[in-house]
């Protein structure tokens, strides 16, 4: 088992854990954290694909992709946090309260 495969599998596991919490947590802040977990897992997976050729040179493209991805993830998180603040101001709650919806 090559090192890069271990990284790739770790990435998948992290993303999977993140996904589980992303779906199951009720608190929106926790959801956001979980979302960042998914992102990190995927980035790890992507970076590991740079060493696809065992003896060849390292592929630079995945690094560029991950860097771009991180920028996107940061801005999305920032927007999420700003929205959560507004949501908390409006409702005083950090969950989607379905019963009070209609």
């Amino acid at each position: 088992m090559s090192t890069s495969l271990i990284y790739a599998l770790t990435g998948i596991v992290i993303a999977g854990l993140g996904l589980f919490h992303y779906l199951s947590q009720r608190n929106i802040l926790r959801k956001i954290l979980a979302g960042n977990f998914i992102g990190t897992g995927i980035f790890l997976f992507l970076v590991s694909s740079a060493a696809r050729q065992v003896d060849g040179p390292i592929d630079p493209v995945p690094h560029a992709l991950v860097l771009t991805g991180i920028v996107v993830a940061v801005s999305a998180t920032a927007l999420l946090l700003a929205l959560v603040c507004r949501y908390h101001d409006e409702t005083g709650s950090l969950t989607f309260d379905e019963e009070n919806d209609e």
Binding site: Y22, L23, F96, E98, E102
Partner: peptide
């Protein structure tokens, strides 16, 4: 129909449908 639509939109159900 109303319940169906609301149930769909609850978060877990929405995520589950995706899965």
């Amino acid at each position: 129909f109303t319940k169906g639509e609301t149930r769909l939109s609850t978060w877990v159900n929405g995520g589950l449908i995706y899965l």
